[in-house]
Simulated assay, not measured.
Amino acid sequence: MKASAFVLLLISGLPAAAIAQPNTAQGELLRRGELTGSRPSAKAQMQAASRPANHASDPAQQHLLQTDINLAQARAEELPNLYERFMATTRDERRTWTAPQWDAAGEVLARLNQRYEQVRTDLPLDDRLRVRSLQGEFHTLRGARNVKEKLE
């Protein structure tokens, strides 16, 4: 009797859980380098709307991802590897980056996040966790750089 009540309680919560999930339109609104799933600001919405969709020829993106790929067409299973490449380059070069280079990296991450938001439900949970971890690592490294600059 208690098990059936528990199952009924779980089932009744499904519609609310579906509503709580962010929709793919939010992927269009991600701020530069923002973690996927957070609420974008009005300024970020305007910036995302004005950003061109095809970035396959962007030199910064080519360098950071170590490939020339149109992220708008990247398959879900390619994204974890693209995030890994992005972070490998970031880890290797971050100590010499200037503010504009950090900004360019943030924009590339925003494009990765935009595509991730569109296809994330096609990825297994462990890949989604890995992507979130890499997103967080970038923000940690960037934040540490900002603190270091303020201390100097």
Rank of each mutant, 00 (worst) to 15 (best):
1 M>H: 08
3 A>C: 01
5 A>I: 04
8 L>T: 10
9 L>R: 06
11 I>M: 13
11 I>K: 03
11 I>S: 05
12 S>V: 14
18 A>C: 11
19 I>H: 05
21 Q>P: 00
22 P>A: 13
23 N>L: 15
25 A>Y: 03
25 A>Q: 06
26 Q>P: 02
33 G>R: 14
37 G>E: 08
37 G>P: 01
37 G>Q: 03
41 S>I: 07
43 K>H: 09
44 A>E: 15
49 A>T: 11
50 S>G: 11
51 R>S: 06
53 A>R: 15
56 A>R: 15
56 A>L: 03
57 S>Q: 08
58 D>V: 05
60 A>V: 02
60 A>C: 01
61 Q>Y: 00
62 Q>K: 12
62 Q>S: 06
64 L>Q: 06
69 I>R: 14
71 L>G: 01
72 A>I: 02
73 Q>V: 04
77 E>M: 08
77 E>G: 03
78 E>R: 05
78 E>P: 01
83 Y>A: 01
84 E>G: 01
84 E>S: 09
87 M>I: 15
96 T>D: 11
96 T>W: 02
98 T>G: 04
100 P>R: 08
101 Q>Y: 04
102 W>A: 11
105 A>R: 05
110 A>P: 00
111 R>D: 13
117 E>I: 02
118 Q>S: 12
118 Q>C: 01
119 V>F: 06
120 R>I: 03
121 T>R: 14
121 T>I: 05
122 D>K: 15
124 P>T: 07
124 P>I: 06
125 L>S: 14
128 R>L: 09
130 R>D: 12
133 S>A: 09
137 E>M: 09
137 E>W: 13
139 H>P: 00
140 T>A: 12
142 R>T: 00
142 R>I: 00
143 G>A: 08
148 K>I: 00
150 K>G: 03
